[in-house]
Design a protein around this nucleic acid. Structure first.
Length: 500
RNA sequence: GGGCCGUUAGCUCAGCAGGCAGAGCGAUUGAUUCUUAAUCAAUAGGUUGCAGGUUCGAUCCCUGCACGGCUCACCA
């Protein structure tokens, strides 16, 4: 039937044109948003009209209640919904017929009229003129349950958005969050820069990259897994406070907190160290959360998360030792393997760094409130400076909230000789089959040889913060168009049903 | 990749110990000039995800596949 309904709509459109009505006109001038009208005229008394005022607004028709010679319908725009009231003696018999015949739920309509409040107290527009602005030929989802099918929600996000104010709000918050982050950083003299997404070498993180190929240079390329190494070249060049917000790509698993394409922000602050970065991270995330949710304490998936400062700080080695009784700084690999075996979490590669990462994974889920985990061993931190007081660890922290790693930061290693050694160690890992180990980047070393100021750097996975502030259970819920398994359009149409 | 669950009308969902496939919304037609999940009357709408098997007969039982969700593994 949907197919039949669609054909009927197409037939209607032809009919409209034959009557000289354009179903897809070019523009409409709004004087008010729906939300504005509600706000501006909230003071009206029931049944009060303001015929002296003319408002013009437009949106999608999301509800229609026909009464014969009058009709109530609801327009939804990007601010709110507003009720409109059209009646025969308001627009004339001819136009009223056009409305009844051609305006359906789902169409975009522009109206001109005056504001009034109904007997029952709803601010509405009394329609004097209306224009059909765009005809929809597919049927809208169910009006109060909306779309629940995850398949439609992820593959046809526009359908979720057009039928769910909550979905619209979720993505509005996403945008608002990045606006707040920029505002926060710009007010502290950080400059937004951008670096390439196509790399000949991957670095700055441990992850498997997506491979691609560039025809002009007949060379293999990778989509970036981090911004880090290019941003540091900015520091060599003379920038002192920079940040970049952009997509990174990691050719790895998908889970509620992992998505192959995600939005990362990196920030570099010359003459600062990881303690300064910890402070600014705390301040920035606390600010963003407060601005968006209005509170320092939020509920995420039924759990309370308290963002009030200062945040807890724990040393990685102490935290692991407290929870698992193994010392990642002093105990032997065999001792660590024994503990991992007990938890059935032995990694494939029995190299010390991997063992430490594995042990960490076992305890990470114990952290709900924002917690800085600090002083990571040197072996798993190839881009961090050695700790000024303990040569076994680095000046590094990760921020954990709700068992998710939200940020990673360190006093950036700027000693070119040592950086070269660290890369060599990573290269050794690649040789023993670690596809995630970093590649030697000789141009980056060369850049460091020209001198980079002491610098604190930070990476934040904002997608996950957005999950928290929107109470979204999965990262796919806050990425507007998440990656989905490809299926042919025919199959997809079979799912949403319709078509040819 | 493993385990569990799911896929029925455009949407949200029922259903059947194997026996002509249902409701609400939405759509169409009609009535209705203050409704708001409007109301009332009528109509249309389905290869029950796909392919096999068992059976007189399968939406239902079995197998395989596709897609999705959760979870474990993997992974910042």
């Amino acid at each position: 039937m949907s197919e039949e309904a669609r054909k009927q709509r197409i037939e209607e459109i032809n009919q409209m044109r034959s009557e000289g009505i354009e179903p897809y006109p070019y523009r409409f001038e709004k004087t008010h948003w729906a939300g504005q009208i509600k706000e501006d005229f909230s003071g009206l008394k029931d049944s009060e009209t303001r015929e002296d005022i003319t408002v013009r607004t437009a949106g999608r028709v999301v509800a229609m209640r026909n009464h014969g010679k009058s009709t109530f319908f609801v327009l939804r725009d990007n601010t709110d919904r507003i009720q409109a009231y059209i009646r025969l003696d308001g627009v004339g018999a001819k136009k009223f017929e056009v409305f009844k015949k051609y305006v359906n739920i789902g169409d975009f309509v522009g109206v001109t009229g005056f504001p009034f409040k109904t007997h029952t107290g709803e601010i509405s527009i009394f329609v004097k003129h209306f224009e059909i602005l765009s005809k929809a030929i597919r049927m809208m989802p169910e009006k109060w349950h909306g779309v629940k099918d995850k398949e439609i929600i992820y593959r046809q996000r526009y359908v979720e958005m057009l039928s769910s104010d909550e979905a619209l709000e979720r993505f509005r918050i996403r945008s608002e969050l990045f606006r707040l982050v920029r505002e926060f950083l710009q007010s502290r003299d950080f400059v937004e820069v951008d670096t390439p997404m196509l790399h000949y070498l991957t670095g700055g993180a441990s992850a498997r990259p997506f491979k691609t190929h560039i025809n002009v240079f007949e060379s293999e390329m990778y989509l970036r897994i981090a911004e880090e190494l290019f941003l540091k070249r900015f520091l060599v060049g003379g920038f002192e406070r920079i940040f970049e917000i952009g997509k990174n790509f990691r050719n790895e698993g998908v889970s509620y907190k992992h998505h192959p394409e995600f939005t990362m922000m990196e920030l570099y602050w010359a003459y600062a160290d990881y303690n300064d970065i910890m402070d600014i991270t705390e301040e920035m995330i606390n600010y963003v959360v407060r601005e968006i949710t209005g509170s320092e304490i939020i509920t995420y998936q039924g759990k309370e998360i308290d963002f009030s400062r200062p945040w807890r700080r724990v040393k990685m080695a102490s935290f692991i030792e407290e929870n698992l009784g193994v010392d990642i700084l002093e105990d032997s690999n065999d001792e660590m393997i024994a503990v991992l075996k007990k938890h059935n979490a032995e990694p494939d590669i029995k190299e010390r760094g991997h063992l430490i990462e594995k042990l960490w994974d076992l305890v990470e889920h114990n952290l709900v409130n924002p917690t800085f985990v600090t002083e990571h061993p040197v072996i798993i931190s190839p881009l961090s400076k050695i700790h000024r007081e303990d040569p076994r660890v680095t000046e590094r922290f990760e921020l954990i909230i709700s068992s998710m790693e939200m940020a990673n930061a360190f006093s950036e290693l700027n000693d070119p000789i040592e950086q070269c050694d660290r890369f060599l160690h990573q290269a050794g890992l690649r040789d023993i089959g670690d596809e995630e180990a970093q590649m030697m980047d000789q141009d980056f070393i060369r850049a460091l040889e020209y001198g980079m100021p002491p610098t604190g750097g930070l990476g934040v996975g904002w997608d996950r913060i957005i999950m928290l502030v929107t109470d979204a259970p999965s990262i796919r819920d806050i990425i507007p168009f998440p990656l989905v398994r490809p299926i042919s359009f025919d199959e997809e149409e079979a799912l949403s049903n319709s078509e040819e």
